[in-house]
């Protein structure tokens, strides 16, 4: 296998792009306890908005990305307004319906190229942009989680009723979390479009949404470093499995089942990988 830097860079860029929706979903699922099977829908909204801004309205790259993110966030506000009152699995089912509806609508709107896709988008995303945006994204989400709001979100995840009793507004924190995660997904979608130079509704199918949730759960709920590691491992996995040739995707499915059975709590299992944790691990055992 030819492991050139060019090849590696391609995989890492793609992993870096998927890291954004994964980080957003990590906040929503891992820290607020809401499962979503529709985040590919938010990616699609962000991706198509960014593409429209850049090609039709000639707005520069970064503002277009942000507009894409904000549009996704705004749509998530509307969806959240309708569905966040639902309990448990029903929110997850509603997002599944939303994601599929977005894809099916995009497939039938000829303005965006319909099901055949939209080729010829400007190629603006490269490895460096993705790395810079990922670092900013990780820092922001870290600050959110360690803030008062982040602690409230964790309280909502742990025990809805108890957090309501101590005066945390469930709806407000679920909504904030959903909007941030949709923003991340939207920016991720924008990056994907400008990296591939091509958008197609098929990219944002239900499989994509479930893949994002798989990455978050694989990385371990409630762990940012877990999500980061999960994104890299699961994007790279089909590449590593390339030696299985045609069996590759069959093995991928089996691997997902196997990982879940072997480690149901995920890679990091709610812990963070940090310098102090490593130092703690390497420290000599104390005398007492």
């Amino acid at each position: 296998m030819d492991l050139s830097w060019y090849y590696l860079k391609g995989i890492l860029t793609l992993a870096g792009i998927y890291m954004l929706p994964v980080l957003g979903l990590s906040l929503l699922t891992g820290f607020t306890g809401l499962f979503s099977f529709g985040h590919a829908g938010f990616m699609a909204i962000g991706g198509y908005t960014t593409a429209v801004m850049m090609t039709k309205l000639k707005i520069p790259f970064i503002p277009s990305l942000l507009i894409g993110g904000f549009t996704a966030s705004f749509v998530s506000y509307l969806i959240g307004k309708l569905t966040l009152k639902l309990k448990g699995d029903y929110f997850c089912i509603a997002t599944l319906g939303f994601g599929e509806a977005i894809r099916l609508i995009l497939e039938n709107v000829q303005y965006f190229g319909g099901a055949r896709g939209w080729p010829g988008l400007p190629l603006k995303t490269n490895f460096i942009t993705v790395v810079v945006i990922d670092i900013i994204a990780i820092l922001i989400i870290r600050n959110v989680i360690y803030s008062r709001h982040g602690r409230n979100m964790i309280a909502v995840r742990e025990e809805e009723l108890a957090s309501q009793v101590v005066g945390i507004s469930l709806f407000k924190y679920k909504m904030t979390s959903l909007m941030i995660s949709a923003f991340y997904a939207g920016v991720g979608g924008g990056l994907l479009g400008t990296y591939l130079g091509f958008l197609q509704p098929k990219i944002f199918s239900l499989v994509r949404s479930t893949e994002l949730t798989i990455i978050v759960i694989f990385g371990g709920l409630g762990s940012i470093t877990g999500s980061v590691a999960g994104a890299i491992v699961l994007v790279a996995l089909p590449e590593i499995l390339r030696s299985f040739a045609n069996w590759r995707l069959v093995v991928y499915g089996a691997a997902v089942v196997f990982i879940m059975i072997a480690r149901p709590e995920g890679l990091m299992g709610g812990k963070e990988l940090s310098f102090s944790a490593i130092k703690n691990l390497l420290r000599k055992p104390s005398k007492n």
């Binding site: 499962f35 499989v207 479930t210 949730t213 798989i214 759960i217 694989f218 709920l221 045609n246 069996w247 995707l249 069959v250 991928y252 499915g253 089996a254 691997a255 997902v256 089942v257 879940m260 059975i261 149901p264 709590e265």
Partner: peptide
């Protein structure tokens, strides 16, 4: 006895497996 979401992900994994097996 695992977290409820893990079993759902396992179901998705089986779905991939069957679809790709049939494709192959």
């Amino acid at each position: 006895n695992a977290p409820r979401m893990s079993i759902m992900i396992s179901a998705i994994g089986v779905s991939y497996l069957l679809q790709n097996f049939a494709t192959y």
